[in-house]
């Protein structure tokens, strides 16, 4: 009986080692800082090891670790904000970057017109897509990347994002809209160039 538990533990440790790189890139997308991302992942993994015996014979271990990591990321984000490590959020409210995608009359600029990315299911399963996503997230401004990842990667509600960032809801929507437009333009550039 004891033997089985030890093997289970070893298996779970191996799985933690296997998922660590992905957890670090997830955390880095939001904290925009590799050292802080590694710290947050470290804390989540330590918490997982501490709770290891409650997972004996149960599934959902990685999901649990991932959930814990999200809390650690939120803590780290709050610390970053307290330390004044965030750029002024209002910087984000400038129209210029988005206006380049549209003509004066509100139609798409010819070279910015969105194209077909192919089957969404296979796009989301492509390792290359995620590399491009990562690069394009890094190219976003800190504020845009944070608000986008709080919403889309962490799944926070608009109210929660307002609380975490101190933004008014309307500004939050404006930032999300621009982040989405910039991300799609950036991803499309790399993704379609490689596919053709």
């Amino acid at each position: 009986m004891h033997q089985v538990t030890a093997e289970g533990t070893q298996d779970r440790m191996q799985r933690l080692v296997a998922v660590r790189p992905r957890l670090v890139s997830f955390a880095r997308l939001q904290l925009r800082d590799l050292a802080r991302a590694e710290d947050a992942v470290q804390e989540a993994i330590e918490a997982a090891i501490e709770k290891d015996d409650t997972f004996a014979g149960r599934s959902g271990y990685e999901t649990w670790v991932f959930g814990t990591l999200k809390y650690k990321i939120l803590d780290a984000l709050r610390a970053q904000r307290r330390e004044g490590g965030w750029q002024p959020l209002e910087d984000e409210l400038d129209e210029a970057a988005i206006d380049r995608q549209f003509q004066k009359n509100g139609r798409w600029e010819q070279e910015a017109r969105p194209s077909n990315w192919g089957n969404p299911e296979s796009t989301l399963h492509s390792e290359r897509f995620w590399q491009i996503f990562d690069l394009c997230m890094t190219a976003l401004t800190d504020t845009a990347a944070r608000v986008f990842s709080l919403r889309e990667l962490m799944g926070l509600s608009a109210e929660d994002i307002c609380r975490e960032t101190g933004l008014k809801q309307n500004n939050c929507w404006v930032i999300l809209h621009r982040a989405r437009l910039r991300l799609r333009a950036c991803i499309e550039r790399d993704w379609l160039t490689e596919k053709t």
Partner: peptide, 26 residues
């Protein structure tokens, strides 16, 4: 196309979780 791309970006969080399960060999 843009609408579909926004929807795809909206699914990234859910897929990240799946990528992690795949890495773990679940």
């Amino acid at each position: 196309q843009c609408n579909q791309q926004f929807h795809l970006l909206h699914q990234t969080g859910k897929y990240y979780e799946r990528l992690i399960e795949l890495d773990a060999g679940t």
